[in-house]
Design a protein around this nucleic acid. Structure first.
Lengths: 133, 133
DNA sequence: TATAGTGTGTATATAGATATAAACACTATT
DNA sequence: AATAGTGTTTATATCTATATACACACTATA
């Protein structure tokens, strides 16, 4: 299965960390069920045009954190993660991302009304995009 | 003058880049006027508890991008930047930050109503914080 | 007007994190 | 046993952050 992962080469966040975060999102959001197999490090490497080593680094970290299991010679699989844990991570990640946006706007001296306006603008744009699908 | 800069050691974004981004924000948001002097690299180094070299790296990058001017033996000063340019950068940074928050929520399968709810919750929290000041 | 002192930015060398390629080892299937 | 799939290990290059030593510019004062 091809994972919907988007990397930003311009970002200063390490690639292995971007991959980690996005796979974690796929698991906590329920897009990847426990037991299902992840792409091999070579397959994902080819798909994302990133070296095998970097993919492996991301998988290693995810395994250490308990999100996946790797078996030599067989492949890599999504681990069993308690639903409560998934929910906890999900909420904190989303909350933090939105709060960061608001905080950034405040630092740039935008008023609460202006922030609300920009937010609604972005939201309606996303709604339209979703309709097109 | 002491700059209101907050660094995150946990973040995967390089420190010099965090410093760059925040000083850029202070300039484009109007908190730092053209011609005013920035803290010396040693003063900022001591303030942020970061090595002199890393501060210098950030200042170098900002100078290359035209936001500041450094003069050996004298110090570092905010450069003249066209108001239109400041506005342009400001808008794109803020817009991107808020859009990122919305996008993250969508990736986690939150509905538009839920996203709106979280946003309002964060906004009202920030409003209360501002009142306290 | 020398000059010592303090403040400024600059250059070189080193340790750790990040990303890569190539060679190795295990597993399943033929 | 051969082979095509998987993950693993080793070695190398670049980026990030640091410490240390240096050179330049102003200011007070002898």
């Amino acid at each position: 299965m091809e994972l919907p992962i988007r990397l930003s080469k311009e970002s200063r966040v390490p690639i292995y960390h971007q991959i980690e975060a996005q796979i974690k999102t796929l698991i906590t959001s329920g897009h990847l069920a426990a037991g299902s197999s992840l792409p091999s490090i070579r397959a994902l490497s080819k798909d994302l045009e990133i070296s095998v080593i970097t993919i492996r680094r991301a998988y290693q970290d995810l395994e250490y954190q308990g999100f996946i299991k790797t078996v030599q010679g067989k492949g890599t699989f999504v681990a069993e993660v308690a639903e409560s844990m998934k929910e906890k991570i999900k909420v904190s990640v989303v909350y933090e991302a939105i709060a960061n946006g608001v905080e950034t706007a405040l630092q740039h001296e935008y008023s609460f009304e202006e922030i609300e306006g920009i937010f609604q603008q972005i939201l309606s744009m996303k709604k339209n995009k979703k309709k097109e699908e």
